[in-house]
Amino acid sequence: MKKIFLAFTLSLMVCSFSACVILSPKKYKALLAKQDSLNSGWSASQSNNESLETRLARLKADTANLNGELADLRAKYETMDANYSKLRSNSSTEINKLSADLKKREQRLKEVEEVLRKRDEATNQLKAKLQEALLGFTKNGLTVEIKNGKVYVSLTDKLLFPSGSIIIDEKGKQALTSLAEVLKQQRDINIAVEGHTDSQKINNLGQIKDNWDLSVLRSTSVVRFLTEEQKVESVRMTATGKGEFQPLGPNTSAESRSKNRRIEIVLSPKLDELYDLIKQ
């Protein structure tokens, strides 16, 4: 009994000195469960910490990569900006040059249009003068018209030559004399005399072999009359023979063949001013 008391007393003393609290089994189990929960939470926290450190390292690496890409993009942008500035400067220079060239071309175009306007005006005036001067010969197959900016005076062979001849008759000389009076007043006009025939073959005309010969010889007869007798400047004259190869219509009837046998005097204004503009 004494031993029990001593043990009890000793136990009380130990408990009083150590402030020991005697727990019930239920509370003890609760404490153990809480300890296990804390241990689990600690382990989870450690695991989360490691995961966060891994993510942080990855984010730092991604940030470094993005910074590198950003630096590359900035460098490319600066290069593109420099190229754009250079291109804009060059484009401005080219635009100014093209604008100046365009203005120059527009000015030349206006000058050419003015020359052509003057040519057309002169051509119309020349036609009017010729029609007035040659009015008396229109009944004999003489026509005056404008084609491609030129005045064409067409005289049928019966107005100028006897059949198969290259000698100009009196009626033809009268018509050419009236024509020469106008030509001598128009010194800026070039004169081309063209001989034309029908397709009938030439027979028994001595030195005249074919329609080529006949067309050429008739055109030269007209040129000689205008230059030698009427004193039209020879330098302005050209004589050509077209033979049967530029007919006005088919050679199927006497009337049609008569129209094809003709002398055409083609009058064209000198266009030296226009040629000079085109060469520029």
Rank of each mutant, 00 (worst) to 15 (best):
D210G: 11
L142F: 06
F17K: 10
E194M: 05
C15P: 05
D210N: 15
N90L: 08
T79D: 13
S91F: 08
L59H: 09
E106T: 09
T123I: 12
S91A: 10
V151A: 04
R187P: 07
G243P: 00
A33Y: 05
T63P: 04
M80P: 03
S99Y: 08
E181R: 13
R261P: 00
Q131E: 12
S253R: 15
E132V: 11
V14M: 12
K127R: 15
T238N: 07
A254S: 14
V14Y: 14
E69H: 09
L23W: 08
E106Y: 09
S40R: 13
K158S: 07
S215Q: 00
S85N: 12
G172N: 05
N260D: 04
L271P: 02
E50L: 15
E229A: 06
I191P: 01
V144E: 01
L159H: 05
K184E: 10
G149W: 08
K129C: 11
L179H: 02
N48M: 09
G41L: 13
K104W: 10
F5Y: 15
S154M: 07
Y152H: 05
E69A: 12
A33D: 14
A254F: 06
I167G: 08
R108E: 15
L160C: 03
E121N: 13
K86G: 00
K171S: 13
Q131I: 11
I265C: 02
K97R: 11
V193P: 00
G195S: 05
R262A: 05
N251E: 00
T177C: 02
I189P: 01
Y152C: 01
A75N: 14
N65C: 09
D72M: 11
E145A: 14
A44S: 14
K209T: 12
R262Y: 02
T197I: 01
